[in-house]
Design a protein around this nucleic acid. Sequence first.
DNA 1: CTTATTTGACCCTC
DNA 2: GAGGGTCAAATAAG
Length: 366
Amino acid sequence: MAFDLDAKLPDVLAGGYHLSTQLQALLSHPLDRSGQEVAMAFSQELSRVFEVSMSMLNSNNAAALEVNTGNSTGVSTPAKDQRVRSDSGEVVTPSKKIREEGVTSKEITPSPHKDGYQWRKYGQKKIQNCKFSRYYYKCNRHRRCLAKKKVQQQDGISSSSRGQLMLPPVFEVTYVNEHTCHVLRANDAAAARMVSPRTTNNRRHHHNALAGIVDTTRSAGGGDDLPFHLSSPDIIGGGTEENKAIVSCLATVISGGAVPSPAEWPPAPEASAAGDPAAFVPPPLPAVSMDHGGVADDGEMMMVMVDDTGFPWVPSPSSFCPIEEAGHDQQLVTMSSYGGDVHMGVAGFPDTTVWAQHTCGAWRRA
DNA sequence: CTTATTTGACCCTC
DNA sequence: GAGGGTCAAATAAG
C-alpha cells in the first residue's frame, strides 16, 4: 500500500481497515508458504499504516487530521480558535464561550463513546455542508467537570473508494478542557466523610472498599456545590490532623518508605472477621508517584497519583472510610483508576503508620 | 419520580 | 445575517 503524500488520515485508516479485513480473510484458513508471505506482507503494511497515522497525528494534528469541515478544500481547522488580543490587550480567543476553554485533543475513531468517561449530550447541531450533525457532550461524572467533547461523523469515508468494502462510520472527536471530575469527586468523598465519619453508610463503604468495589453512588451532602480548586502539589500539609495523616500515609507508601514488614502487619480486617488466621500477603509495591496531593484551602483532602505508566489514580467514592478495629481508628483509602475496574488500597493509622496496601480489587491473602 | 435525550431558541462572534 | 455553541423546556425512558 503506497501512501500518498497528500493522503488524509481517514483515508490512511480506511486503507488500514481494508488491509485488516483482507488479512483476517487470509488467516481464516490454513496457509501454505506463499500464503504466509502474503499475510506477512499485509501485516507489515498494517504496521506502516499505524506508523504513518501516528506520524500524522503527532507532527501536525490539524493538517494530519484534515478535519473535514465540509468545504472539502483540505484546509485545516480555520483560525477560529486562534488567540487574539482584546481591546484591553488581554490575549483571548474570539468566541466568548470558548475563551476559557481549549481544545485538548482530537481523534478519529469508529467508537467515539468508548473513552472511559461518562458523557451527557447537551446539544446537536446541523453543520453547514456536513452530511451529519455534530453532537455536543459534557462530562457526566461530575456536574462541575469542565470537560466536553464534540462528535462529528466524517463525510465520505463510510464507504471505501477502494472498491467493494463498506467501512464502519468514522467520527472526529474533539475534546475540550481537561477533566476535573476526578478531583471534584475526590473532594466529594472527603466531604462526605467529614460530614458523617461514623455512619453505617461508612461501614458499608468500608466493606466495598475492601472488596475493591467502586460505589458510584453520589456522595451525600451536596458535595457538587463545594468550592474547590486544585492548588500546586506542594500544598501537602494544613487541614485536619486526619487528612494530614492520610496524605502522609500515601506519601510514605509512594516514596517506598517505612512500610512495615509483613510480620508486623495486623491481620486483614476481613480475615479477622472470618476468624481466618491466614497470613495477609501484600502484593509488590506499585511504582507510583504523587502527582498532586494535599489539603485544599477549604481543608478537604485530595490527591492524584500517577503510576509508572503515567496512568492517574484518584480516590474512589468509597474512600476515607474508618475501620474501627482493635481499638485503632484506621483509615482506608481506596484509589481507583478511571476505568473503575482496577483498585489500589492504602490504609494506615492516624499516626501515619502505613500497614497495608493492595492492588487489583480485593484484599489478598495467602 | 428521576434521569437522560431531543430540539428549537438564544447568544456570541465574524 | 450566517454559523457554531449552549441553554432549557419538552419529551422519553427506566
